[in-house]
Structure formats: C-alpha cells, structure tokens
Amino acid sequence: MLTLGIETSCDETAVALVRDGKLLGEKLATQIDVHALFGGVVPEIASREHLRVLPRLFKELLGEHGVAPEDIDNIAVARGPGLLGSLLVGVSFAKSLSLSTGASLVGVNHLWAHLLAPGLVEELVFPAVGLLVSGGHTHTYRIESPLEFDLLGRTLDDAAGEAFDKVAKVLNFPYPGGRFIDELGREAEPDTKLFPRAFIDNPSLDFSFSGLKTAVANYVNKHQELVFEEMADFAAVSALSGERRENLARVCASFNWSVADTLRIKVERALKTAGPVKSLIVAGGVAANSMIRETMAGVADKKRLRLTLPNLSLCTDNGAMIAYAGHLLSKAGYSHSLDLEAIPRGRVVPLDWTVGKNIIQA
C-alpha cells in the first residue's frame, strides 16, 4: 500500500511517500529565509509559497522514486489545525489528485501526526501519554492507539514554541530563534529564580506561556546590552564573546529551564490523571530542544516508562509524518470524501472519517 503525504499547515511545504508503513522518500521546501525578514510567519506569503512549490515537489518526489500518480493508493493531507490559507493549498491539491487518480483521500490531524511520527523509526508502545510541543500548540494526551487520542491539557494562549519565537525576537535573533536560545543556553547554568514557571500554581493540566514570555521581555528591556542592534545572523551570534555572551547565555539557559520544568510539572500531573501507561511520547518542533529532551528523559526514567522521542528531522513539520498517519488511517479503513474541510487553528479537528459506508463522527 503506497500512501502520499502532503503537509502545508504553516511555513513548510512537504510531500512524502510511505509504502506499507516504511518511508520511501520525501521532499521539503522551507520558507525560513522568506519569513525571517519579518521575524515570523506571514500567512499570505506562506500560502503563495505553498502554491508555488507544491506541484514541483510532488513531481520531483514521484520522478526520483519511479512512481506514477496512478500507483498511489492513498492520499493523506494535513487538514488542520494550522493557517487556513496554507491548509487550503494542500487540501485542494490532495482533492484534485484523488479525483483524477481514484486514490483514497484521508485528512490527517496535524497534531496527532507529530506524535505518531516516531513510529517511522521505532515501535510505538500504547497506552501512552503524549506531549506535543510545537510553535502553535502545547498539548498532552492519553493515547490508547494510533487512532484514539484523549486530550488532557491544552494551550490557553502562547504555546511553548511561540514563547521561544517571541523571546528570540526580543533579543533580535534571526527567525526561527529557538535554536539559538538552545545552543547558547548550553553554555551556562540556569538561574532557576530568574524567570517564573508559567501557570503551575493550580491543579490544571493546561498550559500558558504568556506570563513567562512577558517576564523575559521585561528583563531584557532593563538589560538592553543583551539585544543585538541589528537582526543577528549565524556569524553575529558566533562572534559574540566575553561577558556579554556569558550574560546572554545565562538568560537563554534560565528561559530554557523555565519552559522545560513547566513541561515536567504538567507531564507528571498528566501521568497521574491518565492512569496506567507504558510509555511517554514527546514530539513537535520544540521537542528538538536539548534541555526539554533531557528533562523528559528524566521524567520517563523516574516513572519507569519507555521514552519515545522523534529524530530531529521528524520534530519539525514534515510530509513523512502525514504520510505515516495517513497510512495508519487507511489501513484501518478510514477515508474522507471530497467535501473534506480544512480546519484552522482554534477549531477542533472533527473525527468525521468514513469507514466503508459508515461515517464516524465524534
């Protein structure tokens, strides 16, 4: 069974082929350089870039692997949540391809796909607690199977990834700046009293990183020597030295710690709420952060759980995770008709698959 995956939920255009659960190949076009000029993703530009590069990536992927469009059995597409204009480009392309080739169409929850992505390289063990940490979402789930996700905690305002992006912007790091915060943070010991751990003084499993973001911004405003006069590039960050580098590294390490320890507290609460589980799955773009990976390893070790972390290449948005999730859905007999809707961020992705002639709606 050959499944094509299409990902256009934000600023990465990606396609991938999965055959019988194994990755056959993938192509990806990033828009980082385009959006770096604005310090963040501009939705209209993102949509136009997807429209420009998606047909080319699809043609190149099939050509490199000797696959004809008629060979594709299933077409999986990220239907949401994400930027509506960007999602519509991918969904429209998927519908057109399904109509022209007769391949089955299935819409994929982008968030679930992140948490299933490690299944491309290792066996996923269920039941599990899943932590998704991405640019737009910080969620915890109890995952009973690849098709059964129970939301435990969710983002109330700024997700962890948004906090990283906004703190990086305050410091005038280039977009996306989370990698610079991580790299500099490794050079210093965190001051655990410098910044707050966000939204932990309550029993909630939900996340809110807006207060932490504001605390860092206020600190930086009082210490303008930390801020690059012009938007930094790799060379400028590398050239930074002396006391200024040490102080900036301490700020980055302290911010990293505040995010990571907040996630630790919430995940440990989620593990208590979820009941007996066998593993902890951590995924999403922010799961590439070294301190978060180390902290989650500590949680799993403490709770005697198997820890599943994606390879760094599978942390960010990619077509392989969509193709793999689509493969699992199609294998279970799930599909969508051509009235499949794109679901923007802020709306719940419905479970409106068709199985045979029966429609599942939850």
Rank of each mutant, 00 (worst) to 15 (best):
C10A: 14
E12A: 06
E12Q: 10
A16L: 11
V18R: 00
D20C: 09
G21D: 09
I32G: 09
L37Y: 12
F38T: 10
G39I: 06
V41C: 10
V42Q: 14
E44D: 15
I45W: 07
A46P: 04
E49R: 12
H50C: 06
L54C: 05
L54D: 01
R56Y: 07
K59M: 00
L62W: 08
L62R: 08
G63V: 00
D73A: 10
V77P: 02
A78L: 00
L87R: 00
L88I: 10
G90M: 01
L99E: 13
T101L: 12
V108H: 08
W112Y: 13
A117I: 05
P118E: 06
P127A: 09
L132W: 05
L132K: 03
V133H: 03
H137V: 04
R142S: 08
F149V: 10
G153Y: 09
D157E: 12
D158W: 07
A160Y: 02
G161F: 07
F164R: 03
K169P: 01
N172G: 06
Y175Q: 04
P176W: 05
G178D: 03
F180M: 09
D182Q: 09
G185M: 01
S208H: 11
G211F: 06
A215Q: 08
V216S: 01
K222G: 06
V227E: 09
A235W: 12
A235D: 14
V251K: 03
C252I: 00
W257G: 00
S258V: 08
S258R: 06
V259E: 01
D261R: 13
I265K: 06
R269W: 07
K272P: 04
P276R: 14
I281D: 02
V282T: 03
A283S: 14
G285R: 02
S290L: 11
A297P: 00
A300G: 05
K302H: 14
L305E: 09
R306F: 10
R306L: 14
L312R: 15
I322Q: 05
A323Q: 07
Y324R: 07
H327Q: 02
L328A: 01
L329D: 02
L329C: 11
A332L: 11
G333Q: 09
S337L: 13
S337Q: 13
L338C: 02
I343D: 06
V349H: 11
L351W: 15
L351N: 14
